[in-house]
């Protein structure tokens, strides 16, 4: 069983990520007084892109490699996480630092593609993406570090500190708040869809991509969004754990749908911020995340 869990993870995420995306789009449409696309529209979109031509406008290998790298790195993350509060065969061999590393690698792949594409809009988007990464990854890292501090281990199980009975403390509640405030940035939605900024940057780093390459990037982004929803559910909602594996998975998925609903609602009711405004916002988040770690070290 432990050996097929990574496979279950990957399949569940790959199959459901577009559905969550559809939920997001549908919800946004409802807020905007529109009917919105069918829930399964993102599957159609991906299929359509997969059937189209891959244009390599830059003609360089980093440009071709970037989408594969982004997709591969997020797939590994998905494979190792303890989805359904159950650690698979790979989880024991990996730790939280690796997850942060792999997520960053995905971001670096986006940068690489944008830089290799050499499009002015892509380059501006890449610089914004870089700033966002530098400012927002610390919050992710510190969420995992909080678990590590609480459980005195860096293994992935630590990413869900209360599941092992660590309980809510001041530090956890503070980190939960910080995580919620960073959620839109993790998800890359308004007010923090700054790197892709459709209006002025025309999708920024993605501008030169088409066909299957674009589909891979899009799917990676959906998987990443789903991972961040999972991390929230698993780290801060330990009471969802029943001990029955399939039921735990379903409960987590249901809770993730709620997280997506929050992302959708916040996204639909906010304009996009400028990168300088966003950086100031992120800086405050980092400070509070550090405070949470400090409190955890003190045992609060």
């Amino acid at each position: 069983m432990r050996f097929i869990m990574p496979l279950i993870n990957v399949l569940a995420f790959l199959l459901l990520a577009p559905l969550f995306e559809g939920l997001l789009r549908r919800l946004t449409a409802r807020v905007q007084s529109r009917q919105g696309p069918p829930l399964v529209q993102p599957y159609y979109d991906l299929l359509k892109l997969l059937g189209k031509e891959n244009l390599n406008s830059a003609g360089t290998w980093p440009f071709r490699l970037a989408p594969l790298l982004a997709f591969a790195s997020i797939l590994v993350v998905v494979a190792v996480i303890p989805f359904g509060f159950r650690a698979g065969a790979l989880a024991g061999r990996m730790d939280g630092i690796l997850v942060v590393y792999l997520l960053t690698l995905g971001g670096v792949a986006v940068l690489m593609g944008a830089l290799a594409g050499r499009n002015t809009f892509g380059l501006i988007g890449a610089s914004r993406e870089m700033v966002t990464m530098i400012m927002i990854e610390p919050v992710l890292a510190m969420t995992i570090i909080l678990g590590a501090v609480k459980l005195k281990t860096l293994t992935l199980v630590a990413a869900m500190p209360f599941a092992s009975g660590a309980g809510y403390g001041v530090s956890t509640v503070l980190m939960l708040a910080v995580y919620l405030l960073a959620l839109q940035a993790f998800a890359g939605r308004q007010p923090f869809d700054i790197a892709e900024a459709e209006i002025e940057l025309l999708e920024g780093p993605m501008i030169e991509y088409s066909g299957p390459n674009l589909a891979l990037f899009k799917l990676s982004a959906m998987l990443k969004r789903m991972f961040y929803a999972w991390l929230f559910v698993s780290a801060f909602l330990p009471f969802l754990r029943t001990g029955i594996y399939p039921l735990d998975m379903l409960l987590q998925l249901a809770a993730m749908a709620v997280v997506f609903a929050v992302i959708g609602l916040v996204g639909a009711t906010n304009p996009r911020l400028r990168i300088d405004q966003a950086v100031r916002y992120y800086a405050v988040l980092i400070v509070w995340a550090l405070v949470a770690i400090g409190l955890a070290v003190k045992g609060w």
Binding site: S33, Q190, A197, R272
Partner: peptide, 16 residues
Amino acid sequence: AGHLIGFDTVFMHAWR
């Protein structure tokens, strides 16, 4: 204007 600052909800409602 709403659309241009990335706020499509304003766009949709103003047009409604």
